[in-house]
Simulated scan of single mutants.
Amino acid sequence: MLALIAGTGALPGEVVDHLADRPLICAMEGFTPDSVTADVVFPLEQLGSFIAELKARGVTEICMAGAVRRPAIDPSRIDAATMPLVPVLQKALMSGDDGALRAVIGIFEEAGLAVRAAHEIAPALLPQLGCLTEAQPSEGDLTDADRAAGILRAMGSADIGQACAVSKGQALAVESIFGTDWMLQSLTQRPDAGGGVLFKAPKPDQDRRADLPTIGPGTVSSAVAAGLSGIVIEKGGVIVLQLDRVIDECNRLGLFLCVRERAS
């Protein structure tokens, strides 16, 4: 039996829509999903008891999908089943995003639960290789994508960000803890004539079972507002929500969307 631990955003709903059978939907307290309805809500301070409940219900696999920020832990709420996990949770909360997710995945695996990626159980979330739109990238755009891939590799070594914007070989913006939308918003008042590429890819050594980068129709609108010419993503490494709508929006607004091979 599969349990989906859902965060905010559209991804949990898309995952459920792609499954033949509805999973048990769970959510961490304080992060109510907006695309699915949770059957079980648990506080992080009672993670150990939550895991025990999953196993009692016959859950053998979990999938984590959707956005969750780092919560503050209230020591007074930590129960006996969670107390042994506190050192791991404290370390996770002090780590980068990938480090934190690896720690949480390790907790579930130690409990005997298999952790599966959203794109593993719903492979249609990953688009195929190639340029998917009527607009096509120029040679300069492809060069900018190469440059952006190099920037993300450097950022990834510090466990920071999964996106950047590049124009004429120069970094316009890089993703921080505030996410891609915030990064693109920062470019709406750029002083140049526009152009450039939004590039998204996982961190080089990222555990791809959680927090895979995602784009959707809103990303297209934000890229246009940022004055960019198109979007390039890594094959097998970026989830596209509502793919048909994303392509339609790109065609309507004159953006290109390309899926390229993983940089070596």
Rank of each mutant, 00 (worst) to 15 (best):
D205H: 07
Q242R: 12
G156P: 15
N251Y: 10
A171N: 02
P204V: 01
L152C: 14
L253F: 08
V232S: 10
S229G: 13
L241R: 01
A193W: 02
A165W: 07
I239P: 00
A158N: 06
A226S: 13
D192A: 03
D205P: 08
T188M: 07
R190T: 02
G179Q: 07
P191E: 09
F199C: 04
L184E: 10
I177C: 14
K203H: 05
E175S: 15
G196I: 13
R153H: 11
Q185F: 10
I177L: 15
Q185T: 14
G156A: 15
A158H: 12
V220P: 07
G236Q: 06
E249M: 13
D159H: 10
T219Q: 09
K168P: 00
S221I: 08
G156W: 15
G236H: 04
A171R: 00
Q185S: 13
V238G: 11
Q162H: 09
A225L: 12
L255D: 08
T188G: 10
A165C: 11
I160A: 10
M155A: 14
S176R: 07
P202Y: 01
A223C: 15
I151Q: 04
G216H: 12
G254P: 04
A173V: 12
C164E: 11
R209S: 02
W182D: 11
V238F: 12
E175N: 14
R190H: 11
G237Y: 00
I233P: 00
I177M: 15
T180V: 11
G195E: 06
A149G: 13
V220F: 05
G216R: 12
S229M: 10
S176G: 15
G194Y: 13
A149H: 08
R208I: 06
K203F: 03
A165K: 03
V240M: 07
G150N: 15
V246M: 10
V224D: 04
Q189K: 04
M183S: 08
G194K: 10
I151Y: 03
E234G: 04
D159F: 13
I233H: 00
D244P: 04
L241H: 02
V220A: 09
L187S: 01
A210W: 00
R209A: 02
V232N: 07
S186A: 03
V224R: 13
G161Y: 01
S186H: 05
W182R: 12
L212H: 00
G236P: 04
S229P: 12
L187E: 01
D159N: 12
A225F: 04
Q162L: 08
R245T: 13
A193Y: 05
Q242F: 06
G195N: 10
D211F: 01
